[in-house]
């Protein structure tokens, strides 16, 4: 039986701040597309949500999400990293932490903040000072050798997402081998497959995030 019990019925309070989940990965792997698939699903399950996007010198991803109509525009903040995207999510995540704090202050009852990194490389990773849980998105069109190259992001993320699975036959990628090698290098840590163009596989990501950091059911 899966029941939820509070810490102490007399004194327990829910945290006043939301869970923070990072979405990182190489340029073009589908981070923003995944975000656009996650937002309506979390909205449908009643999760009080906000979003932070990171870009190097523009606010393009934030504008794309705001224009999508999936979420109130004021719930989307943009961080311009100005330099290496991983600096703003790992070495000095101050800008992102301040943005997340601002969202927490502005939206009472906020439960989840999704923080999308700027496109980076296989060695990017999130500081756990910034996020509670993080996803790393790669795609089959980047090559089926990516997992076995053992990049820091692939190895150390909480959940590895292999996106664009529908493209495998067109880019001569052996998807079963790619998945097998991803599981081998990650030694049991989660790996999920998606096609963010259609939303296939995204429900499993929502369920995973809910199970790992929301604890609301």
């Amino acid at each position: 039986m899966n029941t939820v019990t509070d810490q102490s019925s007399a004194t327990a309070v829910r945290p006043s701040t939301a869970a923070r989940v990072g979405i990182g990965g190489p340029v073009g792997s589908g981070k923003t597309a995944l975000l656009e698939q996650l937002i309506p699903r979390f909205a449908a399950r009643g999760t009080n949500l906000a979003v932070i996007t990171n870009d190097i010198a523009t606010r393009e991803d934030a504008e794309r999400v705001r224009r999508s109509g999936l979420i109130a525009p004021e719930r989307v903040l943009a961080v311009e990293t100005g330099a290496c995207p991983h600096s703003a999510i790992r070495e000095d995540p101050t800008l992102n932490m301040e943005s997340a704090d601002a969202l927490d202050r502005k939206f009472s009852g906020l439960e989840l903040i999704l923080i999308e990194s700027g496109g980076d490389n296989l060695a990017s990773s999130f500081s756990l000072d910034l996020v509670d849980y993080w996803l790393f998105v790669i795609d089959v069109a980047g090559g089926d050798d990516i997992p076995r190259k053992r990049g820091l992001g692939v190895l150390s993320c909480d959940l590895l997402v292999i996106n664009k699975t529908d493209l495998a036959p067109y880019v001569r990628v052996d998807l079963p081998r790619m998945v097998r090698e991803a599981n081998e290098v990650r030694r049991g840590k989660s790996v999920l497959l998606t096609n963010c163009a259609t939303g296939e596989g995204v429900d499993a990501i929502v369920e995973t995030i809910a199970r790992e950091v929301l604890f609301d059911r």
């Binding site: 701040t17 869970a19 923070r20 000072d129 849980y133 950091v213």
Partner: peptide, 22 residues
């Protein structure tokens, strides 16, 4: 230990959801 949210099990198998304030 840097995380504020964490899904874990105790050494006796109790499933816990840690959700701390920042």
């Amino acid at each position: 230990t840097a995380r504020k949210r964490l899904h874990a099990f105790t050494d006796r198998g109790t499933e816990v959801g840690i959700m701390l304030d920042r």
